[in-house]
Design a protein around this nucleic acid. Structure first.
Lengths: 233, 233
DNA sequence: TAGATTGTTAATCGATTAACAATC
DNA sequence: TAGATTGTTAATCGATTAACAATC
């Protein structure tokens, strides 16, 4: 049986110089590679070629090789990619296990749903606390995450080295929350409020999520497909 | 004061031939235009030029004009765009008020959080029902949406002309649910299960959502920004 | 060694931006 | 009419794909 060790020893030294500025198109694809490689790993597969992965993921093999090469040569000619090695490399790139600290601001339906998932721990992100204005839940724990008053938000972030603020408050409250956590030194904002946060500083990264946009794009496609069908009748 | 009617009467006839195949890059931007125009409308603004909108939205004026022109000429030289007219046109394109019927499969945290939002009604999508396997909640109503047993899913979809299935079940259950609703004739799937749904048919549109991917991209950016800062020290 | 498959360059394709004539 | 701003073509830029030499 083929051994991982047979080749894994040769990897370290072979890696090329990584590019300094990788396009966002490539970065957006990394988590998807990570997911599929994780699945393959769980299936017990040891190695994969770009051609085989391309079939599974519905992309071109060329794109896979180009993408991975932005960060150095992770494969081996004539062999393909060692799945575990590649998975670990991508995990590292994506900051899995950097132990980022996160707080969720807004303990409403969405905030609680996010707190309940394994989304954070699976990526090595610690959910330290939730914050809300509702006195009924302040002081309780939701899915084992303590809930504090928003009035303590800034102080908490400063004292606990919070890297990521997840915003799930109503849109009216979002700008003020943003000011507080940015001032308290967070490095990233994952924003679910229905308003776009745009900061004029490059030391705080903002990821604006608009689930409704996705629903609308889906509706557009359904409508367009319908219309095409009707034309052909 | 400037009147909407002054120019709105001239619009209808001026619209150019819309393109038949609009690139997905453009379509993905439509909901964002829709959001910003909605905000402007609520502020009571009547008209806007591509230049002004470009400043608000952080894109180029050129892109705005190109995008809108894929669907016909919605503006007026020397004047700009009538916000209400443009908003309505984009609403129409996106299928707002097509009265699509949707069901949510999986009444867990995320399913309930989605049911609780105004996301659907705001886009004219009707939440007809939720489906789950938990006998404790089958027969109840959650946020005024009735919860039924998954065993009735196929029958319900056929009888109620369901267009959209929102999947929030655990990933193991997702493939079977998909089979059931596709067989029952849904036209679109909004999938939140942590597995990608890929259908080999173009009469059912699938929108796969992976919130975790977005969190990971955020972590990557934070990590990269950190490293750059450290280099400069 | 022969076969396989990467890393990487070159070619293609598509999307964005710039420019300006058309026109309100 | 003069000024403003679109619609649209042409130029640029970037991303994807194809091809193949390098090499395991």
């Amino acid at each position: 049986m083929e051994s991982i060790d047979k080749i894994s020893g040769t990897f370290g030294k072979r890696c090329n110089e990584p590019k300094t500025n990788v396009s966002s198109a490539v970065i957006r694809r990394l988590p998807r590679y990570h997911r599929f490689l994780g699945d393959l790993l769980r299936e017990g597969k040891l190695r994969i070629s770009s051609a085989e992965l391309s079939r599974i993921m519905n992309v071109t093999a060329s794109q896979i090789r180009q993408d991975l090469n932005c960060f150095g040569g992770f494969g081996q000619q004539g062999y393909g990619y060692n799945i575990k090695f590649l998975y670990n490399k991508i995990s590292e790139l994506l900051g899995v296990n950097e132990s980022f600290n996160a707080v969720i601001i807004g303990a409403g339906k969405l905030g609680c749903a996010l707190a309940a998932t394994h989304m954070f721990e699976r990526r090595g992100v610690n959910r330290l606390a939730m914050f809300d204005v509702n006195p009924d839940i302040i002081g309780t724990r939701i899915y084992d995450v303590p809930v504090y008053s928003v009035s303590e938000l800034g102080k908490f972030c400063k004292e606990n080295n919070v890297h990521i603020g997840v915003i799930t408050v109503p849109k009216e409250a979002a700008p003020e929350i943003t000011d507080v956590i940015v001032e308290a030194g967070v490095k990233g904002i994952w924003n679910f409020a229905n308003i776009e946060i745009n900061l004029d500083r490059d030391d705080v990264i903002v990821e604006n999520i608009h689930l409704g946009d996705s629903l609308m794009a889906l509706c557009y496609e359904i409508k367009t497909a319908n219309e095409k069908r009707e034309e052909n009748d």
